[in-house]
């Protein structure tokens, strides 16, 4: 098609073209990640540094959120169960909800906001100020240093944060149950562990790995492909959060269908 003919294309058609071009670009970015992941040299030091930033520095926020989620969910569920005289089921209900869905989802959404935006903004600002070019001209692979290390770090740290959130949420829930139903810690946690299965835990961890990968790769992709100067930095951070959250919900839905199918089988 000539350039003039391309200019005459209707707006919708141009948008569709742009959408698929973006999709192909993102796919190539993901493929490049897997290609670079297994090729030396490895940036171990940077991976550890990023694990610290993503994992340890997110702990205060995750702790507070997880604790509140545990208490709020328990208090919200109590009246409904009380109608059937089934408040003794609270530990089971909470454990299933937290381990299967709320823990991974809440952690991933918070991490998308905190970590995803920071990765997007950091890489975008490095691009705008030619720091990525500076790495490239000094014969260093910026993709490996910036993208691979961050995606590995988010993929490893989000499952750990999810397990921690589950624990903190259950502690919050226990405090609420203990205060209202006078249930001991042993009874609470025995009921918690009786209710959750191996499949619940493995699916939660696998889902968290997927969420972690998504947060990292989306943040890096949006940062790496930012444009329009400093305005682009803000846009990249924003797009990293919105896109990661959107994908996390889609993945949650898909994983739920798969796990339910396995459960039925």
């Amino acid at each position: 098609m000539t350039e003039k003919a391309a200019d005459r294309k209707p707006l919708l058609s141009k948008k569709i073209d742009k959408f698929f071009a973006g999709l192909a670009d993102a796919w190539n970015f993901v493929l490049r990640f897997f290609k670079e992941l297994f090729v030396p040299p490895y940036e171990f030091k940077e991976v550890i540094h990023q694990c610290y930033r993503i994992g340890v520095e997110s702990l205060p926020l995750i702790s507070l959120t997880g604790f509140i989620v545990g208490i709020v969910f328990t208090n919200q569920s109590r009246p409904s169960l009380a109608e059937f005289g089934a408040t003794s089921w609270l530990p089971s209900l909470i454990s299933i909800a937290v381990v299967r869905a709320m823990g991974p989802l809440v952690t991933a959404l918070i991490a998308a906001g905190k970590v995803g935006s920071s990765i997007g903004a950091e890489i975008a600002s490095m691009k705008v100020t030619e720091q990525i070019d500076a790495m490239e001209v000094s014969a260093t692979n910026p993709f490996k240093f910036l993208v691979v290390s961050r995606v590995i770090a988010t993929t490893l740290m989000i499952p750990l944060l999810v397990m921690y959130t589950d624990f903190v949420a259950l502690i919050g829930s226990f405090l609420s149950v203990n205060a209202n139903e006078m249930v001991s810690m042993t009874t609470f946690f025995v009921q918690v562990f009786e209710s959750i299965s191996f499949l619940d835990i493995t699916s939660s961890i696998l889902k968290s790995l997927l969420f972690g990968f998504t947060i990292g790769i989306v943040g890096c992709y949006k940062g790496y492909h930012s444009s329009k100067g400093t305005e682009g930095v803000g846009r990249a951070a924003n797009a990293a959060v919105v896109m990661a959250m959107f994908l996390i919900f889609i993945e949650e839905l898909l994983v739920l269908q798969i796990v339910n199918a396995i459960r039925a089988f």
Binding site: T129, E130, D133, A134, V137, A139
Partner: peptide, 14 residues
């Protein structure tokens, strides 16, 4: 590239 040094306009320090 190892044989060429590039000094950027805005320094491009990390």
């Amino acid at each position: 590239r190892l044989r060429i040094g590039f000094s950027f306009q805005n320094s491009a320090l990390y």
